[in-house]
Design a protein around this nucleic acid. Structure first.
Lengths: 196, 196
DNA sequence: CGTCTATTTGAATGTACTCAAAAGCGGTGG
DNA sequence: CCACCGCTTTTGAGTACATTCAAATAGACG
């Protein structure tokens, strides 16, 4: 059950067996069916979530009711509403499952305990957030400097595993374009792409 | 000289006089003239920078030679190429001064020392990055869900102090539109804005 | 099998872009 | 101090790309 998350952590910090056990004692497992919410806009996010299995998305809904996907997460990724989790104010994002999923969750007080008893975890979460920050910055740069078709190519390059699992509609929402536009881009891409 | 940065830090963690002195011993001050580079694309970012005075921008340059501003920083803000700093690989961003500026810098090895001697700083930098991450995520959501004119309004709302100091061209680059477009948006905004 | 949603395709529209030119502003050197 | 130069900002005209709206097709799920 916990192999994947321990392996994930070991990429950044080394833990003793005792520390591992303590860490595991703080975790909760949660299963979600496709389309179920993990976090709804308006909740206070109480957990950081590690995806052990499945696929989820974090998104915001604008005044017109349109969804804008901020992040996807598949196995071995972390997902949460960072804003809500940090400030303990109501979430601006919703998170739900695109596939039946299994999550490993750790709540806010447990993380604080963890930081005290095993300070190495401060480092781990710092690096985790840093990576998220970097990815997000890169995404901003790409969204500004590349036209929609190039953004789609980049997406496939960066997340080949996801691209296969995600409905086009969801990818369009992530790229900030309409499903119709993405459909057209794709048909262009296939024509040209055969040779590329 | 160091009041501002100490005050900045004290918003997140409390330091003893001794810790403060140790921290200060690690700092370097750097002055920049307007238009001077702090970091150039291709350098390895060795420092985190705190703006004590002045105004800077971090930006990337795309294949067409166009600049895309990722972040502005004025007094009491931190700025660096996070990606380069974390990975110690060459910077993808350039950072330069939009006004004569004064920076307080701390290099990578010093930060690692600091984390060991005063672990509270792990927390500080974690929170700093977290805030950056949240701001960046919000920016992505806004850039996807709002038309250019609304993004400009949001920018004025969020960063009223900056808006006054920044040339229109720089703001346009941040918003991801051309200076011509921003000029037009602005003239609309003034007409309508009088009544708003 | 039927219903609901996702995807494709078409046509008309709109927003922001490019290119071009003029006006405004700031700084520099004679 | 003023004239000039370079850069920023404004304005105009034509263009390109993505959008909206609509309709048809394809797929998924009960």
């Amino acid at each position: 059950m916990y192999e994947l998350i321990l392996k994930n952590i070991s990429r950044f910090i080394k833990l003793t067996a005792e520390e591992k056990n303590y860490f595991i004692s703080l975790l909760k497992v949660k299963k979600l069916r496709k389309k179920q919410y993990l976090v709804q806009e308006g909740d206070v996010a109480r957990f950081e979530h590690f995806v052990n299995k499945g696929c989820l998305r974090a998104y915001s809904i604008d005044e017109k009711g349109q969804e804008h996907i901020v992040q996807f997460a598949i196995e071995d990724w972390w997902i949460s509403d960072m804003y809500s989790f940090l400030t303990q104010t109501p979430a601006r994002l919703s998170i739900d499952a695109l596939e039946d999923s299994e999550l490993i969750c750790i709540d806010s007080p447990s993380i604080e305990d963890l930081f005290i008893k095993v300070p190495k975890f401060e480092r781990f979460f710092r690096l985790l957030i840093k990576n998220g920050f970097i990815a997000t910055q890169r995404r901003i740069i790409e969204s500004m400097s590349l036209p929609a078709d190039a953004r789609y190519c980049k997406f496939i390059e960066n997340y080949p595993l996801m691209e296969q699992r995600l409905p086009l509609k969801q990818i369009a929402s992530y790229l900030g374009i309409t499903p119709e536009s993405l459909s057209r881009i794709r048909s262009q891409y296939i024509k040209k792409g055969k040779s590329v």
